[in-house]
Design a protein around this nucleic acid. Structure first.
Lengths: 271, 271
DNA sequence: GCAAAAGTGTTCATCGTACACCCATGG
DNA sequence: CCATGGGTGTACGATGAACACTTTTGC
């Protein structure tokens, strides 16, 4: 026990601490989905819950952490029970913890936010218990007021985190199907970082991944069967490296995010 | 004083959640101190506590979070009460949350770890209540077994975080005195990132900060009064910008961290 | 004057981008 | 055969590191 009440209370038997807060996890699940506008392709999973505390607002899927459960396990359970998603093998990382007093109306609730990345075509959403609706929503232009509590803050930090991570790690491959073309890879970067990246041609774009080609981490696996589209079919590749790895040098691609350079607070790391 | 048993649970006309965990904060306080060996200059604040649960091991200063307190406030209070440090104006950021079941022997304790940066010459350590000893310890070569619970993990993540941050933000200035020379700035980077950075001369090193000179964010303020040392006295500078800002481009300085490139997991962001 | 540290400018290699060109497919 | 998208190689500009050289101090 800490100072505030009385130093070491039951000093006798191994001081056991009394719970002082509710610990929950929330998960920001990102995916890429085909849409007409490239800016809308990057989407996040939002649910509408039955409970009155959530009003009629959207929220990130989350659960309370069980007594013997890691955060990671709780986060995956949240996706299973709320959205019917089997997240066992998904990319999942801790984002940061949100615990301002009063952020939740039901007590001192501390939420450990996570980010997950998933290939949408793999999954089918299923409403879990206590869930009214469940949807993929484009991350851009989502009004903060539509989200409950401080979930808009979580989403904002998550967006920054994923964008930053795209620049120095290989997480993008988590969002692509097993086999993909260079164009699809470029489209992923364009959707998340900046649509103007589309202007980079294959040659220039590939240079950013030369390290992967050199180490046979990004290997060609034949050609795309032409699915009725015009133009030459792209070569298919498979990524065989660890997504946890990072680049030796961060991507520059300045001209991409050029234009005024919005602000310089990128949340690489919790801030 | 908030009794953690059930002070306000009675007010549960609407679903009031029962606390399921103990929430604490721990702080990794870094500083730079003059030592013969440059690798030893980067140091961390560690304490030895009275409580039996801590055995005779070293730990990061930390406290339990009060009912109406933000994490930030709790972290600063930890430094005040444990080490007598007035951390009101210090750089402080959330690092990540450590909550594996069983990490603490006193119950389900979830700790929100933080990183703080301080100029050592400002401060004098004072043992707080329940503290046996308190010391600055070089961050390198600290055996993990000397730290309690998972504090060695926290420290490891904190080290990676600060190193990464040095490359893309201006946090280094938090560790330097108000007025400093280019050599001292270089020494800070050398101590934290890589001693071989010492080889960069003023001209090359300054180029990494050209953006700051151009915007008058790093301004000359006369010369260092020569304190008995040989050689030409360096020009003094003052940093007037926000430490929260980030570089447009990350530092490269590859040759610095060259040599085998240990591993590629830098914890930029919680991982 | 000499050693030591601070500071400057030029040269060279590297890397990102633009661009001109070639290839494969559907209509 | 031509429009469309995929793919390659070269040239140019920006930037980072090495290095030779100058400046200022203490002894």
């Amino acid at each position: 026990m800490e100072s505030n009440t009385n130093g070491r209370r039951a000093a006798a038997a191994e001081a056991w601490l009394n719970p002082n807060a509710v610990v929950a996890v929330d998960v920001v699940v990102f995916t890429l989905r085909p849409t007409p506008a490239i800016e809308d392709r990057w989407q996040v999973l939002l649910v509408r819950r039955d409970e009155p505390a959530f009003g009629n607002k959207l929220s990130l899927p989350g659960v309370l952490v069980h007594a013997d459960e890691t955060f990671d396990a709780a986060a995956r359970r949240a996706l299973q029970t709320k959205a019917g998603l089997d997240a066992r093998d998904w990319y999942l990382e801790q984002l940061g913890t949100f615990g301002d007093p009063g952020r939740d109306t039901r007590g001192r609730v501390v939420s450990v936010a996570h980010v997950a990345l998933v290939r949408t075509d793999d999954v089918e959403l299923v409403r879990g218990s206590g869930i009214q609706s469940i949807d993929w929503v484009p991350v851009r232009g989502l009004p903060a007021e539509t989200l409950v509590f401080d979930h808009a803050d979580m989403l904002r930090v998550a967006i920054n985190r994923v964008q930053a991570k795209l620049r120095y790690s290989w997480v993008a491959f988590q969002l692509l199907p097993d086999r993909f073309t260079v164009s699809e890879l470029r489209a992923a970067y364009s959707a998340i970082l900046d649509p103007s990246l589309e202007r980079l041609n294959t040659s220039n774009f590939k240079k950013a991944f030369s390290a992967l080609f050199a180490t046979d981490t990004l290997v060609p696996v034949g050609h795309r069967a032409t699915a009725g589209k015009v133009g030459r079919p792209g070569e298919l590749y498979r990524f065989v490296g660890p997504v946890a790895g990072t680049r030796t040098r961060e991507l520059r691609w300045d001209s991409a995010r050029s234009k005024k350079e919005v602000l310089h607070v990128h949340d690489r790391g919790t801030r």
